[in-house]
Design a protein around this nucleic acid. Structure first.
Lengths: 189, 189
DNA sequence: TGGATTTATATCAGTTTGAAATATATTAGC
DNA sequence: GCTAATATATTTCAAACTGATATAAATCCA
């Protein structure tokens, strides 16, 4: 599934500009799917070219001009086909986890800073998940996606809080036993 | 952080072929970072070209030839720089969550199949997380990464199990009230 | 007044994806 | 003993995505 499909999906909820689609992404499922302008705008251009969406240019007096996109019948058909055939994949790319994995190579204060930063990021996401003022659809699926996100994030936050000090202590001990850390790295092989 | 950095990190744990690096990824943190051959092999080529790793060609009698990579002192320095400067980001791209978000457009049996598939996938990952037979490093960081993964996955699995039937019932009701579903989509606007 | 944020779109080099192609060896089941 | 599947091992590449930068005006806040 690419960004095109998701743009089509969001447009079934009402006509929107590329900017509004991005905002919708952020509000509704930034914790599950990220897409930037760099993928949304080209996706909308391609969809327009193939007749899956149309747009009207709106020149606003007191704002930059904008293009309001609508999904077409062909677009709906394409969306349905994608929704019926996309396998339910789920991919994580966590540079935080990688840093944690190599924690024994890091100074303890850096490690602590990383963990605390990650905790703050999770807290921020938890605070942002779908306080949704129903646009026009209030389907239960929204609640499920929000709940699933909350569950995953809360579990990570709890785990981090419960193991932070333990990890720092253990890493410190590990490094003092002579393993890893910058010392060894700086000394060549 | 790119795949190059992570290859360097894995090579601090011992010399490895590209294939072995991929295996290590899968065992140690497939739930947190995915990288395919298509990114690992080019990364190793680029690292070789810049002197951050070296490799010896090993022609095996009963196997395809292989290249065993080692990290150099310059590579270690580059890794340290990256570990010290990479922000602890964490990104999810869940096509499952997107499908769930548009659940009201799907037939109920498709929705049930998606949920059940996702539950099986999570179970499989939980079964695979780092049953690590310590290569040579047994640092506590490994345990932390594994535990964090387990916590996140288990929370999602529980949530899915607890809400599966509720969602299917609610979506069915929602569609019968005349909203969404294929009917509406097929009828044009 | 003036800096930060919001609305709005475009662009693009660099990176990653994901699948296919290539080859051989081993294991498992029949 | 045969055959299919799996494991070892690398390469390639078009299509997609990332993340940063550029542009420009309006509004919010101090």
């Amino acid at each position: 599934m690419d960004v095109k499909t998701i743009c089509l999906g969001v447009l079934t909820l009402g006509d929107k500009t590329g900017y509004e689609i991005k905002k919708h992404f952020e509000r509704a499922f930034s914790h599950f799917f990220v897409a930037g302008f760099g993928s949304i705008y080209p996706a909308l251009s391609a969809l327009t070219e193939d007749g899956f969406v149309t747009h009207t240019d709106v020149a606003q007096s007191k704002r930059p001009h904008k293009k309001v996109y609508s999904i077409t019948a062909e677009g709906r058909a394409l969306l349905m086909e994608a929704l019926l055939n996309t396998p339910p994949r789920h991919k994580v790319r966590s540079e935080f986890a990688v840093l944690l994995y190599f924690a024994h190579l890091l100074p303890c204060d850096r490690l602590a800073a990383l963990i605390d930063q990650r905790a703050r990021d999770i807290e921020a996401m938890l605070g942002n998940i779908d306080c949704f003022e129903r646009d026009d659809l209030p389907p239960p699926s929204r609640e499920m996606v929000a709940g699933l996100g909350r569950a995953a994030l809360q579990a990570q936050l709890n785990y981090i809080r419960e193991h932070r000090d333990w990890l720092l202590r253990e890493i410190d001990r590990y490094q003092k036993r002579g393993h890893g850390s910058l010392r060894r790295a700086a000394s060549g092989s």
